[in-house]
Design a binder for these strands. Structure first.
Lengths: 221, 221
DNA sequence: TGTACATCAGTGAACGCGCGTTCACTGATGTAC
DNA sequence: TGTACATCAGTGAACGCGCGTTCACTGATGTAC
């Protein structure tokens, strides 16, 4: 907990905005959930008193919107980093899926902030009826990846990319969210679950026994 | 909001317990989420002042545990009602899945209370490290249903019922939870999504075009 | 070069809110004599 | 049959907490003259 920070010189008050966002990200990384993401906690994490926050954000919803925006960007970067190579399209999709699950596992509070039903609905964000969807780019990246895989395997099905992407996404979210909310169950590795589902959707080859053994040896969790 | 209720005669104070649970269920049915499930709201909904609650529950966690227990029983009953007939095993499974999605859609606050990551973790329920799992019967019902379907289609795979059931469950939860948390997206019918996934897992026959058309005509949402 | 002044980043105290929980109590009900 | 009493369902007031937000302010910084 940084104590009182020194005041910014005159033109640079705006730097506090970045400090507040960094403080929010630190809170998300430290806490298992986002319930502690209060104005007071974020201010204190930045070494500042609560009223200072209002110099940079009109209200809590505006602060949260900025945090969500930043976290979606980090999420996209994390997934893109896992796929930035020259592997074939369906292997890229598979890696993107594994990265999705790894993000949820390693940053549960961020994951829930972005995707979980109850964490922050449109009400909390003040975006009811608005077409502001900070997660849209993430979703279309997945649709693209699915589309490329489909094109390479079943070109006549490429028009279904959106529908298939929704199947993949809901499968990923179900695995990620339930493994977080019901940790006491004897879960298999998240990657094993999604690989099986991808095989079922014909987006991945059924592994040969040998490949499966190697994969199992490498699997996390 | 019932105003002050009349006092119970002497031996029957215990009836308030049932009234409190009923009040909690009413709140869950009325609110989109479970955030209003406070001691004060539950008491007020039963026409009683907050301290009365402590005559029947030691603290809020105990009240919540009772609510969760009751809601899981309602959930199981709802799913069982959808499958209590003589259809073949895989059709029973399919109906169970559709009922799961219908429960989530029609009772979102209850669904989130039972299954969503952030609504009520073990911390809120005071069940950390305890083997108290009120949802276990629901899960094993699904494992059974998947097992029967597997046995009828691929007897040599019946030992995988648990793994396959987890795939089905995570798929169901992903559909249910994301449709609740991102209502602004252009979702296809939930039943169409799960049917497609069941086909992929070889738990359902790929529909013929004719069947698919009929199914589409009947589909909800 | 020195001084008065406007700017503005950040403070301190307070507001009203809903929350879980505790405490001493009230007063109708049923029972014992 | 009448009365004293124990039981116990439920109350009213208060506690301390963390929250989002508002308000008048302070005081260092940079600028104008």
């Amino acid at each position: 907990m940084p104590s009182r920070r020194s005041r910014r010189p005159k033109g640079q008050g705006g730097l506090l905005r970045a400090d507040l966002l960094a403080s929010a990200e630190r809170i998300l990384a430290a806490e298992g959930d986002g319930k502690r993401l209060s104005i007071r906690a974020v201010a204190s994490g930045a070494g500042v008193t609560p009223p200072s926050v209002y110099r940079h954000f009109n209200d809590k919803a505006e602060l949260l919107r900025a945090v969500v925006q930043a976290r979606f960007e980090a999420f996209d970067a994390f997934l893109d980093a896992a796929t930035s190579d020259t592997a074939p399209p369906c292997e890229q999709l598979r890696r993107r899926c594994h990265a999705y699950l790894e993000f949820a596992r390693s940053q549960p509070a961020s994951y829930r902030l972005l995707f979980s039903a109850t964490e922050l609905g449109p009400e909390a964000l003040g975006t009811e009826g608005v077409d502001w969807h900070p997660g849209a780019p993430s979703f279309f990246r997945l649709v693209d990846s699915v589309g490329r895989c489909l094109t390479s395997r079943r070109p006549h099905d490429a028009a279904n990319a959106m529908f298939v992407a929704m199947l993949v996404w809901t499968q990923l979210h179900g695995i990620a969210d339930l493994q977080l909310s019901k940790p006491e169950l004897p879960w298999p590795a998240a990657t094993e679950l999604i690989d099986h589902a991808l095989v079922g959707l014909d987006l991945l080859d059924r592994p040969t026994p040998a490949k499966a053994a190697v994969r199992r040896r490498k699997s996390d969790r």
